[in-house]
Nucleic acid binder design. Structure first.
Lengths: 212, 212
DNA sequence: GCAGACATACCGTACGAACGGTTTGTTTTC
DNA sequence: GAAAACAAACCGTTCGTACGGTATGTCTGC
């Protein structure tokens, strides 16, 4: 009778409970990083945002740093997907580079997940322990994105790696744009900068038509 | 006899003492921001880096935040100068855009002052008080830089503001490159990205020959 | 020109708050 | 009933800030 699936509430399987709790914790961490920054993302803040007790957090992640690292891993994994498979009806699978960059700006970078990840990246620069815990993840992720870019984009130069290089330049620009927001009061101006950058890069790269 | 200027040591004038102390405090703050990040730049850390007492810091700057704000103001003021007047023999007054961007990357952005300023910018996103204390400074500084860019650069479009827009795009990219460093182990690759970006933007902009 | 009043720069300590992490206790699942 | 999941009280440390006291510089009246 315990194996009967109740759709009401209170998941009974332990594996589900663990997954749900960890999802809640990571989601709360993302929200805190976006709202309060890296230093403001204390265990107490995460506790309040997730609506759980202090012990629950430390049970799944023995230290604050491991929770942050797990959050970074999940964010990287999630950011990998819209590149590989265009999510239907969400704006990816754009026909030109301006549409694609605007999609990335609106749906990947300038969202809580993107801003939270930048907080982690900036913190890694001065946090030795966090950096060493994530550096391997970063390099492999970057290589994976480069490989995807090689398949998806075509550059007008002979160098096959140029498309990947240009795509990393584009991501770098979009990340810088998050920081540049402090100088600009009007969000529309930021999108104009995206469009201007797209105009810069468009003559040098072209979207491959989806083959499959 | 008190008006006789001694060049030996021990500044007697109080105004000199104040200036020297504030210089030391701001320099120490820059070092701490670069090394330990925003959250790690505590009063204790600044105290150790400057080699002064705790009370001396709080005397000149009644709170940690005001010291950070004063540091931001000084960094912005210092960053304004190499654009207006090419410092002799330091690499500015470059002949093409690639040289100029590499100069900015090596001598302005990827230095303790540049990295420290990014820490402040990122902190402003989530620190309401710091943001409101600096937002006016940021907008006026950005406008000043744009004005300088309008005079220094010439864009190949009819829009006179396009040069300023492109220059802000370039600065945004260089700032993003500081963050992108986490993904790259080889610093030479970062300079390659600068060169690739310079190649993107070079056909669209041209350096005005210094008239004066 | 100097003595005393005043203002400013600087120092050391103390206190409240918040943090990360541990320990102990309770509930749920198998 | 044993182990895992969760809750809550607790501890040591560190932070920012405030305050009392001291040294140094500056001004004023005679």
């Amino acid at each position: 009778m315990t194996t009967v699936d109740e759709t009401e509430k209170g998941p009974r399987k332990q594996a589900d409970r663990v997954r749900d709790m960890q999802d809640r914790l990571i989601a709360a961490t993302v929200i805190c990083l976006d709202r309060y920054g890296y230093s403001g993302t204390s265990i107490s803040a995460i506790q309040d945002a997730a609506g759980v007790s202090r012990g629950a957090i430390l049970h799944h992640y023995p230290s604050r740093q491991e929770l942050i690292a797990a959050t970074a891993a999940r964010l990287l994994d999630a950011a990998l997907r819209p590149t590989q498979e265009g999510r239907p009806g969400r704006g990816d699978g754009a026909k030109n580079l301006e549409e694609l960059l605007l999609f990335y700006w609106r749906q990947v970078m300038n969202v809580p997940e993107g801003r939270a990840f930048i907080e982690i990246l900036v913190a890694c620069r001065t946090d030795e322990a966090l950096e060493s815990a994530l550096s391997d993840l970063f390099t492999t992720w970057d290589a994976k994105v480069a490989e995807t870019a090689r398949h998806r984009f075509a550059a007008f130069t002979e160098d096959p790696d140029d498309a990947a290089l240009l795509w990393s330049v584009a991501r770098t620009f979009l990340r810088g744009l998050i920081i540049h927001s402090r100088f600009v009061d009007n969000p529309a101006h930021l999108e104009n900068m995206v469009r201007r950058f797209a105009a810069l890069i468009s003559p040098q790269i072209s979207l491959k038509t989806r083959a499959h």
